[in-house]
């Protein structure tokens, strides 16, 4: 009994290192999506798949917020540059915020659609969790890349 509950507690955390190692092994041409879901799969060998997927979703949600923060910093920097150089105002920060809001609505509508395709129709099904996981990771890669543009 003790052993089982210990295993459960352990199983709900994913190895971030798994994701880092996978991503750092890719070349520029590779599809980063191959590194998404691996950590949850490894975690699920010892525990419940649903909890493992949730744990990886949490990881990407946090990484998405950080990526958005970096992209926003960059956009705000560009906006102040334009202002101090008396260039045409760009409002990159406003455009980025609007894009991110529209992406959230897109993620939710896309995963709601996919959910209707599965027997259970539940938001907690692994398929629905997978939709959230992959779309969040993709947007994270996008924002992280955008934040690095000179």
């Amino acid at each position: 009994m003790f052993g089982a509950s210990w295993a459960q507690a352990e199983a709900t955390s994913i190895s971030e290192e798994t994701i880092d190692i996978c991503l750092s092994g890719l070349d520029r041409e590779s599809d980063k999506r191959v590194c998404v879901g691996l950590a949850a799969q490894n975690c699920a060998q010892a525990g419940a798949l649903g909890a493992c997927l949730d744990a990886e979703i949490d990881y990407w949600d946090a990484r998405l917020s950080a990526g958005f923060g970096m992209a926003l910093d960059r956009a705000q920097g560009k906006d102040s540059d334009a202002e101090s150089l008396a260039l045409e105002p760009r409002d990159q920060a406003g455009a980025l915020r609007a894009a991110q809001e529209s992406w959230k609505a897109y993620r939710s509508a896309t995963c709601a659609f996919e959910q209707t395709l599965w027997e259970t129709g539940a938001a907690t099904s692994p398929e629905s969790q997978g939709c959230h996981l992959y779309l969040t990771a993709e947007q994270t890669f996008y924002l992280e890349a955008v934040a690095l543009i000179e």
């Binding site: 455009a95 529209s102 897109y106 509508a109």
Partner: peptide, 15 residues
């Protein structure tokens, strides 16, 4: 939702 996302993202890229 995708159309709105496409337009807002490409507006951002234009910016």
């Amino acid at each position: 939702a995708w159309i709105a996302y496409r337009d807002a993202t490409c507006d951002y890229e234009r910016s």
